[in-house]
Design a protein around this nucleic acid. Structure first.
Lengths: 237, 237
DNA sequence: ACCTGAACACCGTTCAAGT
DNA sequence: ACCTGAACACCGTTCAAGT
């Protein structure tokens, strides 16, 4: 009689909170992830969360920790270029699993341990590959967000779902208006349809991503071969 | 007696709302920009704004319109490379005037006319410079957010103000801990101090930005010279 | 045509209290 | 040590009403 129908509620802890937050963001999107909703998901009152994360900002930092730890460690016994490439593409896989990760990574300014670990080991690939500390510094900057497997895309099909209006007549009229006002945009968007099906646009994205990544990696290689250094670089305005 | 002390309130219109929103965001930051606060700034009740913008999303789109229009038009009679470079650096100046612009540009998915105009004229530079539509497509993707004058930076000093703690002893201990846990991060961050003063770190940012930009532009030039096309490109996994 | 007032359904977070 | 309840100061936005 004393033990009623109340479930033997699993004790809350930081990890359970973070895992639940990641899962909830995966399901409902980052804008719908609120402290109140997360608490509800955990069958707990909102204030209970504050014993495990100081505030919402720390929750987001914790979520970043969780997902950054999902990125593969650097490949051992691989050439620097392959190693960086694999790493970045692994980060990209993680990002595809957590669509909200991009905006959260962009917004975070504090460097949590998992983030620092990721940077440290990526830097290690370059240094081990014969890059000077100087060049490695700039090369890391040049990679920028691409290191996390994303870049701000201008024609982001995936971010703009259900674009075409149902009515084909409206669609044709819209196309016509575009062709008149923005002929060059139309020209280049139709030019590179390396994938005919609308369905598999993920492949398209990947092609663009790797195009830019390889362009940068080739550039890095060239600078390294030329013993580039920032002091020898002439800054042309 | 009928005309009381009420100021002859200037009639609200869309442009006045957008200009005020941009100004307010410049002053107080984007996270403090709310419909309610903006209304207060304009001496009006919150609901009055909704006659001129449908909702907050449209307000943000409108703000993007305002600032994108501030970017210089393409330089006439300039080589493609110089023209792109100038354009991107002009976008960067705009971004420095409106620190909130970066996150808002990142979050927008709808393409408003001013944004399309910007894309159209930038594409025009490449096409006029002898780039194929195909290559222009990929090159625009590779530029990505750099086209707006920014990239996600990993060591973003400006986003992380007042980092060093006041106590020099604490600072030294922190440095020591970093050196042990993240030796390579420390190595590369000290390696490329091309500007000795802490004050002018804006120059540092500019150096990194131009380093990556020029690396890309040089890569574009090489592909163009080699008559690169997406169909001839072998996709190595 | 434009602005207002009151209300609704949300937020993150503090504080004092419960077990 | 951990969770709760009530409250505070905010949000964006709808709806019916005013001029």
């Amino acid at each position: 009689m004393a033990q009623v129908l109340v479930a033997p509620r699993v004790r809350l802890n930081r990890d359970r909170v973070l895992q639940a937050a990641v899962g909830l963001a995966d399901q409902v999107g980052i804008e719908a992830l609120s402290m109140r909703r997360l608490a509800e998901e955990l069958g707990v009152v909102p204030m209970a969360l504050y014993k495990h994360v100081a505030n919402k900002d720390e929750l987001l930092d914790g979520m970043v920790e969780v997902i950054v730890a999902e990125i593969d460690p650097p490949a051992r016994d691989a050439e620097w270029k392959t190693a960086v490439r694999l790493r970045v593409l692994s980060a990209r896989q993680m990002l595809l699993r957590h669509p909200w990760a991009r905006s959260v990574l962009e917004s975070r300014t504090t460097h949590t341990p998992a983030v620092l670990d990721y940077l440290e080991s990526t830097i290690g690939i370059f240094l081990a590959g014969g890059f000077s500390a100087d060049l490695t510094h700039h090369v890391m900057h040049a990679l920028g967000s691409r290191m996390w497997g994303f870049t701000q895309e201008l024609f982001d099909a995936s971010a703009d779902p259900a674009r075409p209006p149902a009515d084909p007549a409206v669609q044709a009229a819209q196309m016509q208006a575009m062709a008149e006002r923005y002929p060059q945009i139309l020209q280049i968007s139709s030019a590179a349809a390396h994938d005919d099906s609308v369905v598999a646009h993920g492949c398209d994205d990947r092609f663009e991503f790797e195009f830019a990544l390889d362009l940068l990696l080739d550039g890095f290689e060239r600078l390294r071969a030329a013993d580039w250094s920032s002091s020898s670089a002439t800054r042309t305005a």
